[in-house]
């Protein structure tokens, strides 16, 4: 589904790349964890496959089409859904409106369908009452579940998450990872999670470690 070909990235000095010559393939219906120590470049990698930045070298292809061809804004709108460590919800909206806004922007099939959005939130443990409140009144775990619900409502086949459990306790972490697994296995989406927590990574179908500017798949 998603393929990187000779992917490379550096900030100022080409001789000191974060990674170089990366050839990876990510399939639909699978979950992937990318591990690495701080500053190794795993988040930069995520920003490239999420269409938030352009690679300095190589190419990224979605279903054999280059992201350059698709256009980054188009790619972000229709093909990828991002979950952030800091949730990044619209703070002046309710969870319900957060979902409806995302669905409207991404032209999702269920755009404008409040009942559907409520159902998705309810499936993730956000009650109808909570769904109407301002997101700032929700706990961190609840906000992250709203962020996950947002990705579920949108039709993007690729879901990328940047340290999604970074701000959560153990119980919430477990629950969030379960949701990502559901997204991959039940909705048939490709889930790529960047994390520095081995426990989280171990729950994914595949694990890669970024070390010495290369990705190594762990057994």
């Amino acid at each position: 589904m998603l393929k990187t070909e000779g992917l490379g990235y550096w900030y100022q000095d080409k001789d000191q790349p974060l990674f170089q010559g990366i050839d990876l393939e990510f399939d639909a219906g699978q979950s992937y964890a990318i591990l690495g120590h701080s500053g190794s470049g795993k988040t930069t990698f995520l920003s490239l496959i999420a269409g938030l930045d352009q690679p300095k070298e190589g190419d990224i292809k979605l279903n054999e089409r280059s992201l350059k061809q698709i256009g980054l804004t188009n790619f972000r709108r229709h093909d990828v859904s991002i979950v952030f460590q800091a949730y990044n919800l619209f703070t002046y909206m309710s969870p319900l409106n957060n979902l409806l806004t995302a669905m409207a922007i991404t032209d999702a099939a269920h755009a404008g369908d409040k009942a559907y959005a409520r159902q998705v939130l309810s499936d993730l443990g956000i009650s109808t009452d909570l769904a109407e409140r301002n997101v700032q009144h929700l706990s961190g775990g609840q906000q992250q579940r709203v962020a996950i619900a947002r990705t579920m409502c949108c039709d993007a086949k690729l879901v990328v998450a940047d340290e999604p459990t970074g701000n959560l306790d153990e119980d919430n972490t477990k629950e969030v990872i379960q949701q990502f697994q559901k997204i991959a296995h039940e909705q048939g989406k490709c889930v790529i999670i960047v994390t520095h927590e081995p426990d989280v990574a171990s729950q994914c179908d595949h694990q890669f470690r970024l070390e010495n500017k290369q990705f190594v798949e762990l057994a």
């Binding site: 804004t73 972000r76 709108r77 229709h78 919800l89 995302a102």
Partner: peptide, 13 residues
């Protein structure tokens, strides 16, 4: 800025 960032990440023009 964060709100704008989120909107851009969703693919908003």
């Amino acid at each position: 800025r964060f709100e704008i960032g989120v909107l851009l990440s969703l693919g908003e023009a």
